[in-house]
Nucleic acid binder design. Structure first.
Lengths: 339, 339
DNA sequence: CTGAAAGCGCTAACAT
DNA sequence: ATGTTAGCGCTTTCAG
């Protein structure tokens, strides 16, 4: 068995308290004793049990994270940023990958509760009633990152999805496009579903661009869905000349569909994506995108959560709205009217 | 504070032992008592402390995972598979993202030790001496996934990288190519560095294809590196007509470079990647690749680790070698000799 | 079938 | 400056 504090104490010829003191860097320990204890610790390869510590300190330094899809470029990047920030602050991550699996999510939330994690980060907004009520009666700080569920009593770190979608659409309009299609997400999602859709619609309306219902399709943010919806869009008469897709993944799916139909981006169809994931630089033409500050989002999420943890009275109550930014690459071009 | 077992016992009018018994599903508890206890548990929203449990059971159900890069398509996919399998077996994941940061890795390994994780999964092979000696004297089961470090005393779940690279190169040769370039990884890596390189060389040699040193470049498995190395290769006279890149990321970087130089894949240059990551289907032309069984790899890694955990005498001693598979897509074509 | 009591490995008063 | 001791919340003998 692994050595315990008692073993160290006995061999060093001191009390466990003294060992505990050097472990926790307290003063009040004579240098020679401290040195001796440290030597014994090294010799034994002793590492204090975080378990036992947590039990008495009532603090685990664990953060539970619920990710909708680890393999998505957007989520893996934000998770990476979360991990980095957490690690810098001596927190460790317990990660749970949810693929549209409410039962698993509930199970994991329960694990988080049993584990007495210090805080929880959730990155999806399609909360079932069970989950909603579970986290509402949980006395662990919860924070939402990149999404804001309805009737939330928790803080969210997000961008203004409405504005961002509006700006993305306006960009296409300013490029001269008049047949602008939309590939959306799940309308049950407020943040990334409804807000982005309404932003698109209002941009069209405000600039007197005709809204064509046939040009509006909904999917699930994934590449395959973007591909399929684009196929439908290509069947429209007349074909749209531009597309706003609410995720880079979908935009890439759409690009591929266009490619597979012997058409060209941006010559035949301009495309703007959303998220600013790594994908934008990986595809050709490189994808213009409405970027979320993914790195900042992860960092701010963790920083805020840690404040929440250390000071339960601290409560931003307000969501943290970060700025979005249009990054122009090569997937859009100005539209020349045909007559 | 969260309710404890004592609270439940008091309210239910039984002893903590009884509560513990219903918690752990033991028999020998009268149905009415069991029902009463369960009711109280529900009312209180009581969840047993995993911390306290771990302390007495000496089992945390935690697996520590060290990933080289969460944002890479390959690693996020294998991590996703690991997570799924772990979750199915009631294990939870503590993840650590290492970006070429040995200090952070050592720190995390130490956290794993303090946390008394039941097992550790490592997914990179560039072990520093510190790390090597640390894990050697650790009495926690360690398993390597997708890599096999030198002088390992641990089990690795891998493919035969030499054979896979050989087969990939042979495919290009059989397509009629005679100027076949190689973009490799780090030669300090045995698995993905040396083995793949030697596989490439031997395939050329066995088939009497000339080896051109100028056609051989090394980088770091990432897209950018593939891009840069391809740029160098394009400057060669004569230009290679085919390329074997040891990661899909690098292959995509190379594809993009070729695209940016107004050349075409596969018409001007054929490319085969390695890994079989999601990227292969995301790019155009779709990337042919020597695929690793990523899903299986994750699953088998966890299954084996769990065996290791539950039966310390169990020791496959042998590495687990999984099969590789060439998946042909659209990035290679037969080479017509020019004369 | 149920309960009392002894730890699991550590920290934190409280003494000295 | 150092040691004694009482828990932290649970499981697990051992009695009954």
């Amino acid at each position: 068995m692994a050595p315990k504090i008692k073993d160290v104490a006995k061999i060093a010829g001191v009390s466990v308290t003294t060992v505990s003191r050097v472990l926790n860097g307290e003063k009040y320990v004579k240098d020679d004793l401290k040195a001796k204890v440290k030597r014994v610790i090294d010799e034994l390869g002793y590492a204090p049990s975080h378990i036992a510590r947590s039990l008495v300190r009532k603090k685990t330094n664990l953060i539970g994270v619920i990710v909708p899809d680890l393999t998505s470029s957007f989520y893996s990047t934000i998770l990476s940023s979360i991990e980095e920030t957490a690690s810098l602050n001596d927190y460790n991550l317990l990660v749970c990958n949810i693929i549209e699996d409410t039962d698993k999510e509930l199970k994991y939330l329960n694990v988080f509760k049993e584990m007495r994690v210090d805080g929880i980060i959730i990155m999806h907004e399609k909360l079932s009633d069970d989950i909603r009520s579970f986290i509402n009666k949980l006395d662990i700080p919860v924070i939402f990152s990149s999404v804001r569920p309805v009737d939330h009593k928790f803080v969210s770190v997000i961008i203004d999805d409405y504005e961002a979608a509006y700006d993305a659409t306006r960009y296409l309009i300013e490029l001269g496009h008049e047949r602008i299609a939309f590939i959306g997400g799940d309308m049950r999602d407020i943040t990334s579903g409804q807000n982005r859709y309404v932003g698109y619609r209002n941009a069209l309306k405000d600039h007197r661009v005709r809204t064509v219902n046939d040009y509006i399709r909904f999917g699930d943010y994934k590449t395959q869905s973007g591909y399929n919806l684009m196929k439908e869009l290509l069947a429209c008469e007349p074909r749209p000349t531009a597309l706003f897709a609410v995720s880079d993944d979908m935009a890439v799916g759409a690009m591929n569909c266009i490619h597979d139909h012997q058409l060209k981006v941006p010559d035949d169809i301009s495309i703007i994506g959303f998220d600013g994931s790594q994908l934008t630089e990986l595809v050709r033409p490189r994808l213009s995108s409405m970027e979320q500050p993914i790195q900042d989002m992860g960092k701010i999420t963790v920083d805020t959560l840690i404040e929440l943890i250390s000071d339960p009275t601290f409560s931003p109550r307000e969501d943290l709205i970060l700025g979005h930014k249009l990054v122009v690459r090569d997937s859009c071009r100005a539209y020349q009217t045909e007559r």
